[in-house]
Amino acid sequence: MIEPRRNWVIWAIAGLTLATMVGGLIVTGGPGQGRKERRDHVRLNDLAALFDQARCIGASEQRNDGDLSATAQCPDEPRLADPYTDEPYRIEPVEDRHLRLCAIFELPADGDRPRYGGPHGEWDGHCVVIQLKYD
C-alpha cells in the first residue's frame, strides 16, 4: 500500500474490476435488456396464473372452452391481457383436454428449453400447450 512498486497492483485490480464490469454489462445487456426480462417475467407469471385457473375450471366444471374468467368455484381473476401492451393473451382450446396459452414475449426463449418460471407444458416460441386433468 505504500511502496511505488505496488502501484501497478492497484491499477491491475482496478483495471480487472472495470473490465469485468464492462464485460458483465455487455453480457447482461444493460438496463434495457433488464427491463425486457422484467416485463417477460410478468407475462410468464400471468400465463402461470392462467394455467392454474384453467386447471381449476377443468377440474370443477369439466370444461375447456377457453373462458378463464372467474367462476364461483374458481374465484381467482387472472390477468387476461398483457399489462404493458394491452394485447389480450391468446387462449385456445386444443383437442380435448389441452389448452394453448400465448403471450408476446420481447425476448426469445433460450434454445429449446422452457421459459424459466412459466407453466409446465410443451413450449413452442411464445406459446405453451398445457394439459388439463378432469373426468
Binding site: 492497484i10 454489462l25 433488464g34
Partner: peptide, 26 residues
C-alpha cells in the same frame, strides 16, 4: 448449458460502490 445472467447484475451493482471505496481507502 446454464446461462443465467441475472446474478451478474448484482455483481456489477456491488462493484460500482466498492471499487471507488477500495481506491479511496488505499
Amino acid at each position: 448449458r446454464t446461462r443465467g445472467s441475472s446474478y451478474l447484475r448484482w455483481s456489477i451493482a456491488v462493484l460500482v460502490p466498492f471499487l471507488p471505496l477500495f481506491l479511496v481507502l488505499d
